[in-house]
Structure formats: C-alpha cells, structure tokens
C-alpha cells in the first residue's frame, strides 16, 4: 500500500484536492439550497410547499449517479458545455440538497410551536420569528444529522470518478488500471478518504457537545 501511495503521490494528492474542492463547494451550496427548500416545505403558502416537496421527493428518489450523468451527458448536449468536475459537483450539490432540506425541515418542525406563536404575538413577522427564534434553535437540533449528511457528501463525491472529475476515486481507478494492484490502490484511496472524514466526524461531535451545553 505504501509503495503505491508514494510512487503515485502526486496523482493521489491531486485527486484528494479535487475531492476536497468538490466537497467544500457542494457542502456550502447544498446547505444554502437545502435550507431554502426546507423553508419552502413549511411555507404558509400552499403552492410554495408543493414545489418544495416535489423537488425533495423527486431528487432524493433518483440515484446520485443518474443525476451526475444527467449533468455530464444531457446538459452539455442541449444547454451548455460542462466538464466532468463541474457536472459531478452540481449533481452532488443537488442530490445532497434534497437530504439537507429534509433534515433542516425536521429540525425546524421539532422546535415547539409555542416559540413561533410567542414570537408572532410579540409582534415579530414570520421571517423575523424564523431567523431570530426558531431557526437558531433548529440548527442546534440538526447538527448531528447534518454531520451525517456532510460525511455522506464527502464519500458520495466519489461519483465524480464516473464523470471524469479527477477526484480521488478517479485517480485511484487510473492507478489501479496502470499497476494492476487493485487491492493496495483502493486501500490507499480508502485511507485518504478517512483523512477527510474522520476529522469531520470529530468536529461534528465536538460541536454537538459544545452546543448541547450552551
């Protein structure tokens, strides 16, 4: 394993970089998009709720690979040129956003209704009540499940390998094909994924603990 790792260090490092980059972009974007759809799912307006629910149900019931392929194959044919990295990252973002939407929605809805009623009776608008009272409480509740989503996201970024996204998995595939040493290569790839996900896991646990006592 170490021999493979050191002789292909540059390729693996570049793969790790692309995996990290795709993960960070998808994490931030899916958090924003997911939260927006969560708010839509609990909107006071029926048609906004319908759109929110439709998006979440549609996206989360399609395999990630299919979504990524759609952006890699279909979008360039009809709409605009897109490289594998972009297509994969967009696919990953959209796929993850549906799960984040459900997580955040559940968090908001588990904040007791009295918090919203108290705030509205205090003269706050719906949005003010959401931003200052309900949402900050919901975020604490969703830290653990959100952590799961983020770790899944990093691992799911391996979908980039299938759309030529130059990520860690993609580099691993190339190295395995060139060296025929499948076992050691994927072992090395696995270890490098752990290098990203394990610190995330611990960071999430730390946040959970700290915010729980606050």
């Amino acid at each position: 394993m170490f021999k493979i790792m050191f002789s292909n260090w540059d390729a693996l490092l570049s793969g790790l970089g692309y995996t990290l980059l795709a993960s960070v972009i998808a994490l931030i974007a899916s958090l924003i998009i997911g939260t927006a759809f969560a708010l839509m799912e609990i909107s006071l307006h029926k048609w906004v709720r319908v759109i929110g629910k439709a998006y979440v149900e549609f996206i989360r019931n399609i395999p990630l690979l299919v979504i990524a392929m759609a952006f890699y194959v279909i979008v360039p044919q009809f709409i605009m040129q897109m490289d594998g990295f972009t297509a994969g990252t967009i696919g990953l973002t959209i796929y993850t956003s549906a799960f984040i939407a459900e997580t955040v929605r559940a968090g908001i809805q588990s904040v007791p209704n009295g918090q919203m009623e108290g705030a509205r009776s205090n003269g706050l608008s719906y949005m003010q009540a959401m931003t200052h009272v309900v949402f900050p409480q919901a975020i604490k509740l969703v830290i653990p499940p959100l952590g799961n989503q983020f770790i899944n996201l990093v691992k799911n970024s391996s979908v980039l390998a299938f759309v030529a996204g130059f990520d860690l998995m993609y580099q691993g595939k190339l190295i395995a094909n060139a060296t025929f040493n499948t076992f050691d290569t994927y072992l090395a790839v696995g270890v490098l994924y752990l290098v990203i996900t394990m610190p995330m896991s611990y960071a999430m646990r730390y946040l959970e603990k700290r915010w729980h006592t606050a």
Partner: peptide
C-alpha cells in the same frame, strides 16, 4: 401564554428586548 413561550435561545433580557428592537 399558559406555557410561557419564552425564547429558549435568548437570555431573559434578550427575550424582552427582541420585540422592541426588531419591531
């Protein structure tokens, strides 16, 4: 309210000042 509905994420002082400052 019967069950108070104070803002759980705010201090006592902030509970009282939130409405006046925001609204």
């Amino acid at each position: 309210f019967q069950h108070f509905n104070l803002y759980a994420n705010k201090t006592v002082l902030e509970n009282i000042t939130l409405g006046p400052t925001l609204v």
